[in-house]
């Protein structure tokens, strides 16, 4: 499937989104003034460490935040498209939906698969009943028609329908549960699917299977895939674009090939050199000094400056905006992006 260009209207436009969590010590600024387009049909990876705010972004997109969270500012314009990918003209702000409208929005327009695949199920319901629940809530197919639709989806995610349909969640392995959830997420044919750490805590061969299933699905169905991960190689494998998240903001956003070849932000470069791969030489691996910032009491200026080898005076004073770098499609929030690759990449290609 070709990647729709930036001129095609996006499925979801996130503008100035700020999300805070209220805790005793103060406000945790989990997402800060985020602007992001989820393009029609694209696969977008949100990459970052734990505590960077990437899961909050995903939850925010579905308005599934816990009660301690407050969406301080922002709008999220969602657009509907017809089968051929033409805009239907229907668009609305997800932020303005009431509870009833939200319930219809979830599953139908966007679905999310959570990180802990076992906890996402009701343990006393068989898989068939979990599907039945979701279908009923949306006035979707029932009975035999629903079973047929589910079997079709199980086929797509490479599960044995007969076995899964009548099982309880605990009877399935971690990888199987993850695939059942992906099938359930796709039940109402949503144009947007969000996956939180889809392969974390799974074995190598199971991870490979999930990756292959997702690639397969993207070839067969038309939906935007947003996945949240700390694993750069998963992004390399599956994403069209990569957004690097640090301290609640996107610090780099670009096409996957370009980002890996010409990373612009020191943090992205740091992440790339911090993760050894099968082919890297030991001497080319180095960790990022320091630890992620405290989101309640953040450093001044660029939030990465205490850990950044290129930090200068300006970085301590002013937070850099996310701006185009080498081209319009590759953005970075760094005062020194022009020097970053040359100074920090271990072996420039």
């Amino acid at each position: 499937m070709s990647i729709p260009s930036q001129n095609h209207p996006s499925t979801l436009s996130i503008r100035n989104l700020t999300i805070e969590y209220q805790v005793k010590r103060g406000a945790v600024q989990a997402v800060r003034n985020l602007n992001l387009e989820i393009r029609y049909g694209e696969s977008l990876a949100l990459i970052g460490e734990s505590g960077s705010g990437k899961t909050t972004i995903g939850m925010g997109m579905m308005r599934l935040l816990p009660s301690t969270a407050r969406i301080a500012t922002g709008e999220m314009i969602f657009r509907r498209f017809d089968k051929a990918g033409q805009a239907t003209g229907v668009e609305f702000d997800v932020m303005k939906l009431n509870e009833r409208e939200l319930r219809l929005f979830r599953w139908k327009d966007g679905a999310m698969v959570f990180q802990a695949a076992l906890n996402a199920f009701n343990p006393v319901l068989k898989i068939r009943d979990q599907f039945g629940d979701t279908a009923r809530a949306h006035g979707y197919l029932q009975g035999e028609a629903l079973r047929k639709r589910a079997y079709e989806l199980f086929g797509l995610v490479r599960l044995d329908p007969e076995r899964v349909w009548n099982s309880y969640p605990h009877e399935l392995s971690g990888g199987m549960r993850q695939r059942v959830l992906i099938a359930l997420g796709l039940l109402l044919d949503p144009p947007m699917l969000i996956l939180d750490e889809p392969t974390t805590a799974l074995d190598i061969l199971t991870q490979r299977n999930i990756m292959d299933v997702l690639k397969d699905l993207r070839g067969k169905l038309n939906f935007s895939l947003v996945f949240i991960s700390h694993d750069l190689s998963l992004a390399a494998e599956l994403a069209d674009r990569i957004a690097t998240v640090y301290a609640g903001r996107i610090v780099e956003l670009g096409n996957v090939y370009d980002t890996f070849q010409n990373p612009q932000h020191p943090y992205t470069i740091g992440l790339m050199s911090a993760v050894p791969t099968l082919t890297t030489h030991r001497d080319h691996v180095s960790s990022i000094p320091g630890s992620p910032p405290d989101l309640i009491d953040m450093p001044s200026g660029c939030k990465f400056h205490p850990r950044c080898p290129l930090a200068v005076e300006q970085c301590k004073r002013e937070e850099p905006p996310l701006i185009p770098t080498t081209d319009d499609e590759h953005l970075a929030a760094c005062w020194r992006w022009m020097d970053a690759k040359q100074k920090l990449m271990p072996n420039p290609k």
């Binding site: 190598i204 061969l205 991870q207 990756m211 190689s233 390399a236 494998e237 994403a239 890996f260 791969t277």
Partner: peptide
Amino acid sequence: KVLLSAVPEADPERTR
């Protein structure tokens, strides 16, 4: 061999 071939690489061209 199977395990190694299943591991994704942090390089889009190589891994695909």
